[in-house]
Design a protein around this nucleic acid. Structure first.
Lengths: 187, 187
DNA sequence: ATGTCATTCTAACAACGTTAGAAAGGAGCG
DNA sequence: CGCTCCTTTCTAACGTTGTTAGAATGACAT
C-alpha cells in the first residue's frame, strides 16, 4: 500500500484530533492512534515521549488556535467575547478535546505572546492590575471550557439537552461575567 | 486479622476519598482501593457496578456536601458566595476529587432539592427567569470547579504557584461573576 | 446437620502505556 | 555495485488496568 508512509509529530497530533472527533476521548489509545496512521504503537514513541505529552500538544493546539485569533487594538469587551466564542467553537469542532483541555491546561508559552496584547486592551478602559487582568482572562477561559465540558462531556454521545439550552447557558454565563468586569473594574 | 471485615458501598466511597486524598486520582484503581479495604478487587463489584459509577458517587458526594450547606432565607449574593467558598473548601480538602468532579458532573437529583431554595433567593432581588437563575448557579459551580482543577490538577503534587496566587484568582473571579449578576439582573 | 443465601474469593480475559532491542531501508561514499 | 551509517519502524514482552465467570466461604434458619 503506502510503504513509505513516514510519520512525524504533526501527523500524530492531527490523527489524535481525528480519533477524538470521531470516537471520543475514551477511544484515544496509543494503539488505535497508531492504527489510524497505519503504524504500530511503539513507533509513536520515537516522535512523542509519552501519552501525557501528546495530550499536552492537543490542549496547546486548541489554546493556540484561540490565542492567535486575537485582534490587536480592539476594546477589551470585544476581545474577551471573541475569545469565549472562539474557544467554544474550537471545542465544538473537537468535542473529545474538551476533556483534554480541562485536565491538562495549556502551557504558559502558548499564552505568553498574547499577554501584552491582552494587557493593553484591558488597561484601556479598566482599572485593573496586571495580575487581575490575567486572572480575569484565565477565569473566562476556565468558565467557557467548563461549560463545554458539561456540554460535550463524554463524546461521541450527543449532549443531553438541546443545543439551544447550551447556547442560552453560554450567553448568560459569558455576558454576566463580562458585565461583572465592567461593573467591578470599569473606568 | 479482621476476618469479618465486611464492606459496603459506603465503606468503598469512603476509602475512595482516602486514596484520592493521599495518593491522587492516578493512584485510584480498583485494586489499590480494594487493598485499602483488605479485600480483593472483584469483591467491589458486588457493591458497585463499575468504576464509572463509583466516580459518580464521589462527584455526587462533593456536590451534596455543598448543596446541603445551603441556608434558606438568605440573600442571593450570600447564598452564591457561600456555595463558591464551600465548593472550593470541599475540593481543597479532597484535591484528587477535583479531577473527578470536573469530568463527571453531579447527578441532577443532588441539586433537585435545592432548586426551590435557590430560585426563591434569586427572585428576591433579581429580575431573572428560572432558567437564567439556574444557569447562573451552574456557571458559578463550573467556574469554581475549573479554578480548583487548575490549582489541584494532578495531585498530590503541590500547586505550581503559592496559595495566595490562587486565593486572589478565586476572589477576583467569583466577585466579578457575582458583580455581573448584580449589574445584569439586579432589580 | 443441612440447606440457603449473601458475600468474597481465585483465575482469567482483553486492553492499556511503555520499553528494549532487533529489523528495515534509504543516503552517502568507496 | 557494495558497504556503512543513521533514521525510523518493527516484534515481543512487561506490568497494570477494568471486568467477568464461577468456585469457595461463612453465617443463619430449619
Amino acid at each position: 500500500m503506502s510503504p513509505a508512509a513516514r510519520i512525524d509529530t504533526e501527523a500524530i497530533v492531527h490523527a489524535a484530533f481525528d480519533v477524538l472527533d470521531r470516537e471520543g476521548f475514551a477511544a484515544l489509545s496509543m494503539r488505535t492512534l497508531a492504527a489510524h496512521l497505519e503504524v504500530k504503537a511503539a513507533s509513536l514513541y520515537y516522535h512523542v515521549p509519552n501519552k501525557a505529552a501528546l495530550l499536552q500538544l492537543v490542549a496547546d493546539r486548541v489554546a493556540r488556535q484561540v490565542v492567535t485569533a486575537f485582534v490587536p487594538g480592539r476594546p477589551w469587551r470585544e476581545l474577551l467575547h471573541r475569545m469565549a466564542r472562539d474557544l467554544r467553537e474550537a471545542l465544538r469542532a473537537h468535542p473529545g478535546a474538551a476533556a483534554v483541555v480541562a485536565v491538562r491546561n495549556a502551557s504558559p508559552e502558548v499564552f505568553e505572546n498574547a499577554v501584552p496584547l491582552v494587557l493593553s486592551a484591558m488597561h484601556e478602559g479598566l482599572r485593573v492590575t496586571d495580575d487581575e487582568a490575567l486572572h480575569l482572562v484565565q477565569a473566562l477561559y476556565v468558565l467557557v471550557n467548563g461549560l463545554a465540558l458539561a456540554e460535550f462531556g463524554e463524546t461521541p454521545e450527543p449532549p443531553a439537552a438541546p443545543a439551544a439550552y447550551y447556547d442560552a447557558w453560554f450567553d448568560t454565563a459569558v455576558s454576566t461575567f463580562l458585565d461583572g468586569i465592567q461593573a467591578r473594574h470599569g473606568a
